[in-house]
Simulated assay, not measured.
Amino acid sequence: MSLLEIQYTMLKYVIRNLQYLTLIFGVLFSFAVKAQGVVNIYNWYDYIDLSILPDFEQESGIKVNYQTFSSAHEIIQLLEQKKPIDIAVVPHFMLKQLVRKRLLSPLEQATLQPTRENLDAFIASRVTLVGAGDYAVPYLWYTAALGFNRSSLAKVLGDDFKEDWSLLFDAAQNAKIKGCGIAVADAPVELYATLLSYSGYPGLLDKTPLNRMRRLTRKNLFELRNNLRYIDSDRYLYDLGKGDLCLAMGWSGGISRAAQMNKDVQVVLPSNHALTMAFDALVIPKTAKNSAAAHQFINFLSKPEISARNVNQTFYGSPLKNIKPFLKPELQNSPLLQLTAQNKNRMQLLSAPGIEQQAEMDALWDAFSHQ
């Protein structure tokens, strides 16, 4: 081979490698650009410490576009309408449906290694249990709970009333309570699961016979509806806290906040029934435009000191281990926020309704809420 041929061969080699390097740097640059810009986040109303958002912006250089919704139905509609969302917070019992409809993108597990290392093993196993380990990271957990104003209830029931779900589901009792105000959250899945447990059945909505749902609705819910002041997912918290209600069924975090507003309000996890546990999850929809930033935000939320700020603000439980030192002193031993061995043994993960059960429950809930 002549010297000219050798030089020509070497030149082709250099050019080819420069092309490869250009391609590699282009991909890396593209990823870096995507990690900047804007991340579009959709979350439940009043479900985050809002000061976290500017802190993330300052640390990452990523602008946060933060939107809220007020029902599971609303966020499902947005996802089905292909709304460009980078991160959504969804109930765990919707995850199978979203995966089945191919509305979610698998998460980059290697990128989320810092988050995985911080997760409590019990909560992490719940994500696996619902078949969404590749698509979701737990955000906050909660239980269905009762909140009541003790002094108000004592006036109508006497001082020795029983602190359990009979306050809500027993027609004779809720008829007496009607005058001082009863409300429930707009949460059919949680309410039906709790009613099943109260009635002595497993709270497994995917296995509940349809005739049982109809019978319990007629026996308990229609009677209750006659004595309800309203059904609303946000209003009950403030009215219970202000003393405008004396009994409310809602989520543990919301009722705990009402108790902080009013010292007469007590939060009860009834001891004679299973705890209906649920969690909301962080997911990245197929329509995400900035997946890199979404992963970065998930890791940011999963720092113990950041997650604790959400707990301090919302009163919902963190899925992370080792956050107790970061909680407010008055929350560090709250039974509604601690994954104690006793609580874990009693917790029954809220199951997603089967297709037939969902259709039946939707019809029954519509009749109940518009009665």
Rank of each mutant, 00 (worst) to 15 (best):
I123E: 10
Y66P: 01
S307V: 00
V127I: 10
T68H: 00
A367T: 06
L4T: 15
G37F: 04
S318M: 08
I306A: 03
Q348F: 01
S30P: 02
R218W: 02
S199H: 08
S334C: 11
I85S: 00
N226R: 11
Q260H: 14
N343R: 03
Q97E: 14
Y42L: 03
L210P: 08
R309V: 09
Y8N: 13
Y66C: 03
A72T: 09
N17L: 03
A187L: 15
M213C: 02
V127K: 09
L140N: 02
D234W: 13
E74K: 08
M347Y: 11
D86G: 06
M249Q: 13
H92Q: 12
S334D: 15
N310A: 00
T314H: 03
L146R: 01
W44I: 14
P325N: 15
S256A: 15
A363Q: 13
Y238R: 12
K82R: 14
A172E: 12
L320C: 04
Q81Y: 07
D86W: 03
M249D: 12
V89E: 09
N211D: 15
Q36A: 06
M94K: 04
I75Q: 01
D362Q: 11
N312H: 15
G158V: 10
G354Y: 08
G354L: 09
Y139C: 04
M94F: 03
A183C: 14
F326E: 15
D264I: 01
L275E: 07
S60E: 10
L282S: 00
Q348W: 12
R257F: 00
L301G: 07
N65Y: 12
C246N: 03
P335F: 02
A171V: 07
Q358F: 11
A274K: 14
